[in-house]
Design a protein around this nucleic acid. Sequence first.
DNA 1: ACCTGAACACCGTTCAAGT
DNA 2: ACCTGAACACCGTTCAAGT
Lengths: 195, 195
Amino acid sequence: MPAKRPPIPLSRERIIDAALHIADSQGLRRLTMRRLGDALQVEAMAIYHHLPRGKDALMDALAEHVTAVHVEPGGSWQESAKAWCRASRAALREHPGVLALALTKPPKGRTAIAIREQTDQLAEAGLGDAPGAVRALRAYVFGAVAVEVQQSGWAEAADDHDEPWRPPSKGGGSPGADADFELGLDALLVGLTRH
Amino acid sequence: MPAKRPPIPLSRERIIDAALHIADSQGLRRLTMRRLGDALQVEAMAIYHHLPRGKDALMDALAEHVTAVHVEPGGSWQESAKAWCRASRAALREHPGVLALALTKPPKGRTAIAIREQTDQLAEAGLGDAPGAVRALRAYVFGAVAVEVQQSGWAEAADDHDEPWRPPSKGGGSPGADADFELGLDALLVGLTRH
DNA sequence: ACCTGAACACCGTTCAAGT
DNA sequence: ACCTGAACACCGTTCAAGT
């Protein structure tokens, strides 16, 4: 008698992790309640007990997971902005499968909180139009990651459901893309300085 | 005997137009082969005759429609770049329902051609790293439109399938967003000038 | 409280058949 | 050549039922 039914109990966190894995390796279109159930060794219907709004709630949770980013407060507003942008880029790049959701769903829940928090940090560090700056920073990160992921060939790799997709480089950034990102970020911060 | 069966024959163009209308007014998730057939007064299966690869081909075509952008050559590279960015932004904003596809699908077909064409225009106008510049311009437009559409509340409006969503302003731009876009674009062009 | 099984309405796609 | 009808495998979600 080696195996009882659920070796570990289902939880919202385990569901989201499994969903991220499916979305990243096979694409959003193949993320299915039934497939997700299989991955969790559970019938699909069990998921509804932990995510009452079903697939919509799952999509919201996935977007939130890559989009609710926090950094330690302190330092100049430039340092705070840079840290937040780098962390946001890393979170988005880590899960290309849900990038479409992250760029498209309006901020809610923990994401909206994180945005307000970052806005407050920049304002307290002395920046004038903090809400406008955060919009500009989010736009910069979104655009940069979108073209990076397009260029990485993730979409094609996820379609051939052969071996799973590997990110372009180990530490989490091809050196050219990293340099471009930092250069553009510096330029953007200069632009924000003179309103 | 007022009505014969297909008042006008089906065509790839009519299919794509109807699909854009559904995606923009009800969201991508409700764009269905059967619903698309209904909108075209045709059985869903008739669509496969014009789009042999089915729904995948339809998605590719929708992304291409908002993403294959051309502008007249001529003028300085700054003028060419600005015109291309403005036209790209307008095309993306016009169809928020397929923005997720546009930001996420790697460029193919007419989109890839348009990108090469714009790269050549910038190079011929004397810009040094034209491919890098086009990447930066595409990233800028993608990010700007993503936050604009998020802010516009399109996603929520498309979910309540009540009255269809209306773009924020008539001419195609809320004045604040237009000004922000132009400001950021100017700053980016300055950044591209000094490599 | 947590999970299952059966059921329902809907989906993409195929294929043979109609015109 | 262009469209339909029936069929198949799959999907999201509900609900009563099990434990």
